[in-house]
Each structure stands twice: as structure tokens, then as C-alpha cells.
Simulated scan of single mutants.
Amino acid sequence: MDLFGDLPEPTQTQTSAPLQSNEGNDDQEVSVKRKASDEEEEEEPVEVKRVCTEGLPALRGFVAARRGERDEMQDAHVLLPDMNSLMSAQPKSVSRLSYFAVFDGHGGARASKFAAENLHLTLAKKFPTGESENLEKLIKKSLLDTFKQTDEDFLKKASSQKPAWKDGSTATCALVVDDTVYVANLGDSRAVLCRMEQTEGAGQKKPVTLCLSKEHNPTMYEERMRIQRAGGTVRDGRVLGVLEVSRSIGDGQYKRCGVISTPDLRRCQLTRSDRFMILACDGLFKVFSADEAVKFVLNVLQTGDGSEQDPGPDWDSDQVLDSACQQLASEAVRRGCADNVTVILISVSFTK
């Protein structure tokens, strides 16, 4: 059984060949320059094989945040298109790391702020290094350990306060390792991917929305059973009639009732058919379905009549992408969402 919930590959052949999986891909094994002593340079040239950045997707992140009708902005976010600078070392087979995250706080902003400031730093320390034969297994372990450590560190800090902090936060984090995105999430914030698929007959493409995360709320059977086994109850769709999510960072008073900080993990290889990812708190998805959010962004990106076709050649300018992100968040508020709304739009583009 695989370690992650893999998402489907494109079902149609693309005009530009998508990147294949790392296994057996000779195109990703290229000779690179390396530092060498004079003696080494006189020896027969040695080919060092590793994944190079050429051919990897270019990622750009844009964020829009709205307080809504709440008294306080309790959301937090992180955009790190290049995470390599935080790494003391990493597997030789990895060329680039990117990290994007949305944290939706409740009961205060301290848990979401703490997670935004610390989770990626902990991940950088726990990420596998050196030669890694089972890289995917080690990435999974590093993500699970990072969430556990972040939760424990916050709870330790929260319990030391007078009075103790009762803040909690959801988390949806996208870690992009070369051309593969690993999404770790807990709570009800979400991540979705827009992929353009070829239609039968005419050469047009239609958008397909891939869900990269899984919501955790007490009404779900497995979540409710875990809470009840721990001695908690679910009333009115909430833990003890109060907490809306069944997994979170923080919420120390509910940890004994079966609320956990173990994230759901999913993996998806990015292809030339992919256009963008959306990471957002439930403030967006209370008034947008995943499909509606993707189509709304596509409509803003269109340079033509707004039909659901592949965006035009100018769709990926920073100005247009930022506008799409801002308009999506503003539209959520206009539709009546009274909650905080935070949206991260991540463009995915491959060089020709």
C-alpha cells in the first residue's frame, strides 16, 4: 500500500510531454559542475547524477487576506517559493524545495501565528538529508514529526501562560519537492489544484479540479469514533458542542477528548497541464465550492470571453495573478462570509 493518497495523472496525452515520475527518468539525470581539487580535475571526468532545476515548474505565490466581520484577524500564512536557503543540507537528489501554508486560528491568533512562524523551521531541521533511498517515506515521517513537534511546542508555551492560552489552529501546508507537491493538512482549511485536460474531439481543454486535502470535522464517522473512544462527545457537529474541527494545532483543553494534530498527507506530481493551486481557510469554502473557486480564478485570468478554456498567453503575469487572488477573497466577503478569509494562489508554469 502506498504511503500517500496519490492523485490521478492526466487522462489525456498532452501536446507538451509532462514530466514523468522520478523512477527511470533519464532526462532528470544530468551531468553537473562540482567543486574539485586540481588532482580530481586531472582524473577521468566523473558524472554526478542529480535532479537539476531545468524542467522543474516555476512557482509563484500570491496572498489575499480579509478580516471580514470578525473583530480580529486570526489567520496566518507563509509563502516560501524557495525554501532551500533554510536547509543546512538536503538529499542530493533534491534540487528545490518550496513551501506554502495557511493557518486558520480560533479562540485567538496565537496558535496560527506560532505555527506560521515555526512549522517550516522545524520542517527544515527534520527534512531528510544526504543519500536517501526511501525519500518519500522519509518525507512523510518528517511532515508527521514536524506537525507533532509544532503542536507540542505550542501547547508547552500555552500551558506556561497565566491564564493558559486556549488558542487552536487548522493547518494546510504544501511542500513542493522538485515537481511533486506534498500536502499536509488538519482541520477544515483546504488545498485544490487546477489541471487542464484535453476534451474529446475538438482540441480544447477543460479545467479539472483536484482536491489535495481532506477536511477533518467531528461529524465524519472515523473522527467521531476516535473522539468518543477518547471519552469526548460530539454535539451539534462540534467536539463537546464547542470545537468545529477534530484535528488542530493547539486546543490543549480538547486533546484529552480525541482532538489530534496528525495531518492527512497527500502527494501529487505536477505536470505541464497544471495551472495553479489554491490554499485557503474555510472562510473561502463556506461560500465557494472547490470547482467554483477554480472557475472564478480562471475567469479572471482569461483574456478572451471568459469561457472555460485554457488561459491566454498573458494569464501568468504577476499583476493578473495577484488580481485573481484579491478578487477571489473579496468575492467571498461579498457573498456574505463573515469569517476571516485568507487565500493563497500558487501559479504553476513550466518553461518550454
Rank of each mutant, 00 (worst) to 15 (best):
A164D: 01
S31D: 13
L345A: 01
Q90V: 07
E69Y: 04
D264S: 14
K156E: 12
D27V: 04
L59G: 09
Q149T: 09
I260R: 12
V343F: 08
A338I: 11
K140A: 15
L175R: 10
L210G: 05
G201H: 08
F62L: 09
S93H: 08
L59Q: 04
L135P: 12
V300W: 05
E152D: 13
R96L: 08
A293Y: 10
V239K: 00
C52Y: 09
A290E: 15
F296Y: 14
L321E: 04
C194I: 02
A230H: 03
K255Y: 10
D38H: 02
A65I: 13
S112H: 02
F62P: 11
A280G: 07
S317W: 06
V234D: 11
T53N: 13
Q20C: 08
F147S: 09
L59A: 08
K140P: 00
G283S: 09
E47M: 14
R67N: 05
E42F: 04
C211T: 13
S349R: 15
E222K: 08
L270K: 07
E200Q: 12
F114C: 02
Q198K: 15
A230W: 01
L119R: 04
K126F: 05
L86K: 06
K49W: 11
V259G: 06
S347M: 06
D188C: 05
V333M: 03
K206V: 12
Y99H: 10
G5L: 10
V46H: 10
R229K: 13
A17W: 07
I346D: 03
A171V: 09
S317T: 15
L265G: 01
L86I: 00
P311V: 06
Y182F: 15
K162N: 15
T13A: 14
V94F: 04
V30C: 12
E197V: 04
F288I: 08
D291C: 06
L240V: 07
V30A: 14
R229F: 12
T15L: 12
V341N: 08
D322Q: 15
V348A: 05
F100E: 01
M1Q: 11
G231E: 03
V78N: 07
V245Y: 01
V287C: 06
P313Y: 00
P8H: 07
E152C: 06
K35V: 09
R256E: 10
T303H: 09
E131L: 06
G232M: 03
T180R: 08
D2E: 14
K286F: 01
S261V: 02
I278P: 04
S330D: 14
K214R: 14
E47H: 12
F288K: 04
L56A: 03
R224N: 12
S317Y: 03
G304P: 00
K141L: 11
L86R: 11
D151I: 01
K295Y: 06
S347L: 07
N84I: 02
A230G: 05
Q198Y: 08
E308M: 14
S330F: 01
C211F: 00
Q327T: 10
E200G: 13
D167I: 03
I278C: 09
L7I: 07
D145L: 10
D314F: 10
R256P: 02
Y99F: 14
N25W: 11
D75A: 10
G312T: 07
D305W: 06
R195D: 06
N84Q: 05
N22F: 13
A116S: 15
A17K: 12
E40S: 03
A115P: 00
A109V: 05
S323W: 06
D178H: 05
R66A: 10
E331L: 08
D314Y: 08
M87K: 00
K92Y: 13
